[in-house]
Simulated assay, not measured.
Amino acid sequence: MIGIVIPACNEEQYLEKCLHHIRLAIQALPTLSQEVRVLVVLDSCNDQSLEIVQNAGVEYLQCNFGCVGKARDLGVRHLIDSGATWIACTDADTWVDTQWLLQQINHQPADAICGVVEVDSWQNFSILTRKNYLAHYQDVMNHPHIHGANLSFSSNAYLQTGGFEALCCHEDVDLIQRMLKLNLKIIWSNLVRVKTSSRLNARAPEGFSSFLHQLEIASSPIK
């Protein structure tokens, strides 16, 4: 069984679209493919995220961690206990590619797969910020990037490394670094793709949105 884990903290603006694209990725799998279970971990939500998940008929857990590392770990371990052998992680403000799951299957055998992200829109940023970002980001096979919004792994590899730590940011990087120390097989693929929001109000203090915001500041001309 494949398990998909989506942490969410007040994501009513994006969550419905996220779940729609997850459904499209599941529908793109071969008819005789294995079961896929989707789990949203609602962490400290006080908006309409719960109602959106319920209306979508998607499984969910609720917690009040205020910590993405703990929320991801809760969801991953719940699905592993339910029989999942492969876990795919994304974020609630992210829209997976239709081939997202299929490409993960095509990359097997693997202990983990690090995919790439695209920014959904550059309208909030300057032309120079976009240019600097694209110069930095390597959208190629064997890229060096790690994103919790596009990270998947086997249940065995997750348990072997001890899982996501209780970190409020960089929990994804921490997990992969521990996998590397164990010489696990990690595939760095630009065929496993997602688009993520370009919002400026970051949930994680040093996450992707914060990175874009800091890049915008650095790209602004000094007055």
Rank of each mutant, 00 (worst) to 15 (best):
H20P: 08
Q62E: 04
A204S: 05
Q34K: 08
S219H: 08
P144G: 11
D172P: 12
I52S: 02
E11M: 07
N124L: 12
I146F: 06
Y158M: 08
R199C: 04
K223E: 11
L101V: 02
I146S: 05
F211W: 13
V68T: 01
C168N: 01
G148E: 05
G83F: 13
S44P: 04
V117K: 01
T161R: 11
S126Y: 15
R193N: 01
P221W: 09
E59A: 07
R199L: 07
N106T: 03
I80L: 09
A135M: 15
H78Q: 06
G69N: 08
T129V: 10
I52A: 02
V96F: 07
D139W: 09
N150G: 03
A166G: 00
H147Y: 14
V5F: 15
R37N: 09
V119E: 12
L50G: 02
E51F: 00
Q138M: 13
S155N: 10
S33K: 02
D43K: 03
H20V: 09
G75I: 03
C67E: 00
V76N: 08
L212C: 14
L175N: 03
Q62K: 15
V68M: 00
Q177H: 10
V38W: 15
V68Q: 00
C114F: 10
I87Q: 10
Q177I: 04
R203S: 15
N106R: 12
D43P: 11
Q177K: 12
L159W: 07
C89V: 02
H213T: 07
S198R: 14
R199N: 14
Q62R: 06
V96G: 10
L151N: 08
S209G: 02
W95G: 11
S121Q: 08
K131R: 07
S209E: 04
S33I: 03
L50N: 02
F211T: 11
Y60K: 11
G69Q: 06
